[in-house]
Computed example of a mutant assay.
Amino acid sequence: MFPKRILCAICLGCICILTGCWDRVEINQRGFVVGVAIDKPEDGTKNVYKGTYQMIVPGGLKLNGANSPGSNNNPHAGQAYFNMTTSENSMPSIAARIAGKTSRSPYFEHLRMIIISGDSVKNKANLPDILDFFLRNSEMRRSVQILIADGKGSDILNIFPNNESTPIDYISSIAKNTQKTNFMLSESRIGDVHEYLIKHESFVLQTIKKEDGGVTLSGCALFDGKTKQFIGFLNGEETQGLNFITKRIKGGIVESKIDNQIVGLKVERSNRKIYVRQTSPEQVNFTIKIIVEGTLDKSIANLDPSEGKLVESLEKSFEDTIVSTTRQVIKKLQQTYKKDALGLGTYLFQNDNKMWKPLADNWESGAKLFTQAGIDVQVEVIVRRVGNIFESTKE
C-alpha cells in the first residue's frame, strides 16, 4: 500500500496533467474562414494591407441559399457566406481587427484559398510577410491554394458563385480543370510556395482575374527568386508554352491551321527531355525535346484525316504551333523579365552540379547568363487517333 502522502501527490499530479480540453471552443462559436483576399489599401491610409475574409454561414449552407436574398432584418439570412474587410499593417493585426467586428472569432482550419493582388506584392518581402502568418498558424493546412489576382482580390470574393454555394467553391472547381485546359498552371499550394520562398529560384503562381461577372484562371504570375517580388504576368498562350517546357501539361487542346481550317489536338500525354552543351565558360546551350501524343478533336471539312499524308501534315502543323508558343515564352523570360522560370538553372543544379557552380552567381543576376543561354526547342507530335466526324468530297 502507498502512503497517503504519496497517493495524494499522485492524484494532484494527475489533476494538473489531465486538464481535459482546456482550450476547447464550441463549434457554434467559431467563424469558419474559407477564403482570404489581400489587397493594397486605396483609402489613403498608411496601412500596408487590406484583408477580406470570406466566412461561412452554416445555416445558409443547409438551405443551399447562396442565391437567396437576405431579409431586411438580417442581410445574411439565407446566404451561405459573408465577407468582412479591414486594413492594417500586418496579417495578425487584420485577424485581430476582424475578430473585434464579428461575434465568431476567425478560425482557419477550413481555409481553402488565399487570393493576393499583384499590387500588394510588388515590394520586396511582401509575399513572405503575408504568408508568414498563415504558415505559422497551427490551424493552417499545407494544401491551402495560393492565387495571384490580376486586379483586386476582394472583387473576386464578391463574384456571383455560379452553380456553387460560395465563390471559393466556384473558384476551386475551376482551378482543377487542368486536364481540360493547358492555358493555366496547376494549383499553387502554400506548401509549395513555402519551398519557393526558401530557394533562390524564380517561380510562377496560378493567376486569377475577374471577367464577365465570373473569373478566369488563364495565365500565371512571375516572381523574382531573390527578392520574392511580383514581376509581371504571362498570358494564357505563354503559360501553355511554359507548361510544355516544364512538364506541367496534363491535357487540354492545342489548336493549329491546315488548309485555312482550325484543327484541334486533344493532348493525352506529353513528355520533355533536356540536353545541355557548354561551349564556353559562360555560354550554355540547351536543347529541349518535347513529345506530345493526342487525338484529333475537331472535324475537317472536305478532308479525310485517315490519309497518311494528311496525318503527317497535321502533326507538322501542331509541332509548329507548340514550337511557336514555347519560343514566345522563352523570349519573354529572357529578354523582357530576365528570369529563369523555365527551371533550367534547377536542371543544371540537379543534373550537372559541376557545370552549375561557376554559373550560379551570375545566372539571373550579375552577368545574367540565363539571358545569353541558347535554348532550342524541338517538338514531335504523334496523332494516335483521328476520333472525329469528317466530310469528304469523295464518292
Rank of each mutant, 00 (worst) to 15 (best):
Q54L: 14
Q54R: 11
M55C: 05
M55E: 08
M55F: 07
M55W: 09
M55Q: 03
I56K: 09
I56T: 12
I56Q: 06
V57I: 12
P58R: 08
P58D: 04
P58M: 06
P58G: 04
G59Y: 00
G59F: 02
G59R: 00
G59Q: 10
G59C: 05
G60S: 09
G60F: 01
G60P: 00
G60Q: 03
G60W: 00
L61K: 05
L61C: 12
L61Y: 13
K62A: 08
K62E: 03
K62S: 12
L63K: 12
L63Q: 14
L63E: 09
L63W: 04
N64C: 05
G65Q: 02
A66W: 00
N67D: 14
N67A: 12
S68H: 05
S68D: 08
S68W: 04
S68F: 00
P69K: 00
P69Y: 07
G70R: 03
G70E: 02
G70V: 03
G70F: 01
S71N: 08
S71Y: 08
S71G: 11
N72R: 13
N73A: 10
N73W: 03
N73R: 06
N74T: 07
P75R: 01
P75W: 02
P75G: 03
H76M: 09
A77C: 00
A77F: 02
A77M: 00
A77L: 04
A77K: 02
G78L: 11
G78E: 03
G78I: 08
G78N: 10
Q79K: 08
A80V: 04
A80E: 05
A80F: 03
A80W: 02
A80L: 07
A80S: 13
A80H: 06
Y81T: 01
Y81L: 04
F82A: 01
F82Q: 00
F82Y: 11
N83V: 11
N83P: 11
N83G: 09
M84Q: 06
M84L: 11
M84V: 15
M84G: 05
T85K: 05
T86R: 01
T86E: 07
T86W: 04
T86N: 01
T86V: 06
T86I: 03
E88V: 13
E88C: 13
N89K: 14
N89G: 11
N89F: 15
N89Y: 14
S90R: 14
S90A: 13
S90G: 11
M91S: 12
M91P: 10
P92N: 07
P92M: 09
P92G: 09
S93R: 14
S93D: 13
S93W: 14
S93I: 10
I94A: 08
I94C: 04
I94E: 06
A95M: 11
A95K: 10
A95Q: 09
A96T: 09
R97D: 11
